[in-house]
Design a protein around this nucleic acid. Structure first.
Lengths: 340, 340
DNA sequence: TTGTAGGCGTTATCAC
DNA sequence: GTGATAACGCCTACAA
């Protein structure tokens, strides 16, 4: 059943059938009734989505590209709050949300999902700096809304000043006398696995790299960067255990996300360390759990960030727009003066 | 830039360009290289998704229709676990997940999102019994995977025996001597609002209706059905407060979901009631929070249910398949003998 | 290994 | 108020 066959069955033209669905005012109510009745009788369920998408050039859907597994969208507290805000806005416009996977594991960067996706706009959660996904989207004429301000400065984005966030934490720790700080970062290795020390430029996610840069600017003394896998409590915990078992443990541990920091915090208390007397811990983002666990962190309006992205995604306006959201250092009980 | 213009620019045929992208083995490596290079130069980002979807009849995406707000997918514990399992499976097949909104508020049932969606298969979370969304999907040739066994018995589904689940709870409470039970259900009113008493047939979600039927079969004495809004802690709490403030409060409160039951549980302790000495509370599903709060409930394998749905969604097999998952009454500390 | 031709289902434009 | 026609961009037999 297509518009054409239905039209033939009724003795009208395809255009009229199309109008019956898309422009009720373009034909008499009686004829429209007749068309809809015949459609129901013949099992025609309305214009086909693919045909329509091709013709009108829109699909009423926006994409969210996840750089982790798709289930990350439902499990990571930051992602959950961000996506809740985003979907809240887009659904008010009758637009659906396409969760798109991106396998980073393979050698060849995988952009298949963005090539195949029928979407009007795209946003990317934590894009690795050199990844082609954004460029591919733009080349396809898909509006791109970045979530950082460095990967596409002249395009549309909704971001915070990640470098400044790093500075806030660095200055806070320096002011407390910390000269030996470990920074726990996110890699794509499985969570809680082997711990590795990293060079700065191995930190691929652009926002994390900015935070690290800010930290480096404002910290004095030793700054080491390690990782025990992707963004998860287990990674933070494994990293903390590894750090404290070494001869000269750091006096402060910074997680580049609250999740990593909270993982470290838990591991430290399990190991019998007093926080912040023995070690200070600090995170980023201020997810709900950070407040519940008295974690010092840099707050950002996560839900509002999602909503702002949502607004840009559904707005067909061609001109790029930028939104810079405020951040604030929230000092809680997990940081204190450096020991000794 | 299209396949055609690119082909013209290269002096080859559109078919060859298409093959360069879809069947590398159908042309010489050299020619393919040349095509890809020219494409990069001219800014052609590969075959257009809409055109391709129309032609091949597939879109590499499966839909999940939410009967609540989209953000429900990220906030409700059952939905989160279910969708994590589902997406885990589908992403292994390179398939994306389309979260589709469904506004129930309007008079006319809104099936626009399923009419417009370019998807290969669809599943629906908690479909109201008489809703046309499923029928529309089938009429469009979209494979439908139900999550209950009554709305489309001969189609594909992954379900539990909800009626039996209700019986398990009912028998448990009857065995404990309860003869005055209140059942808290989910309506589409805002959470925690005014409390209303309902007739059985007002319970629209088919799975909830089955649970209620099971309860009615196995309970003796008074059974009343009330609601304070949609599936949320606040609704359960409001319902419990309303129930206990009446002259003859029930001896047991059953939430048709754990979330409703946990909301009731919290409200009861806040009001100073001892559970289960004064009142018993019981839920359904066994989400993680149920175990943490010692709630008696009927367990089902939520994540596995999501994975099973995912497998059916990506499986192009035409023949319908049915999966019935096991359930089990988990007795914890929230239920006990009826007082007096 | 490459080219030709037809149609997937729709809607916008224009004429009547 | 209604109908004819021409794209939209692509893929796949099949022929060369």
């Amino acid at each position: 059943m297509t518009v054409k066959t239905l039209a033939a069955a009724l003795g009208v033209s395809p255009a009229t059938v199309s109008n019956a669905y898309n422009r009720p005012d373009q034909l008499s109510a009686a004829l429209r009734e007749r068309i809809l009745a015949k459609a129901a009788e013949l099992g025609y369920a309305g214009p086909d989505a693919a045909g329509r998408a091709l013709r009108v050039g829109r699909s009423e859907a926006v994409g969210v590209l996840l750089t982790e597994r798709l289930s990350y969208a439902f499990s990571d507290p930051f992602a959950v709050e961000f996506l809740s805000g985003l979907s809240e806005v887009v659904e008010q416009h009758g637009v659906s949300v396409l969760l798109m996977p991106l396998s980073l594991s393979e050698d060849e960067p995988d952009v298949r999902s963005v090539q195949r996706a029928s979407i009007d706009a795209l946003t990317i959660l934590s894009l690795p700096a050199d990844h082609p996904a954004g460029a591919v989207a733009k080349a396809r004429g898909i509006r791109l809304v970045s979530t950082d301000l460095v990967s596409d400065p002249d395009g549309s984005w909704v971001a915070i000043d990640d470098e400044r966030a790093g500075v806030l934490v660095g200055e806070h720790l320096t002011g407390l006398g910390h000269h030996d700080v470990a920074v726990v970062v996110d890699t794509n290795a499985p969570a809680g696995g082997e711990v590795v020390e990293l060079d700065a430029d191995v930190v691929t996610f652009v926002d994390y790299a900015s935070r690290l840069r800010g930290l480096r600017q404002s910290l004095t003394g030793r700054v080491e960067v390690i990782s025990a896998g992707h963004n998860a409590l287990a990674s933070g915990a494994a990293a903390a255990r590894w750090l404290m078992h070494r001869p000269e443990p750091p006096t402060a541990i910074v997680g580049l996300s609250d999740v990593l920091a909270l993982g470290a915090l838990t591991a430290l208390t399990d190991l019998g360390y007093a926080v912040p007397t023995d070690v200070s811990v600090c995170g980023f983002d201020d997810i709900a759990a950070a407040g519940q666990n008295d974690l010092t962190t840099v707050a950002q309006p996560i839900g509002e960030r999602g909503r702002a992205v949502g607004r840009l995604l559904v707005d067909p306006e061609a001109a790029p727009r930028q939104v810079l959201l405020p951040i604030e250092l929230v000092v809680r009980a997990s940081t204190g003066p450096a020991p000794h």
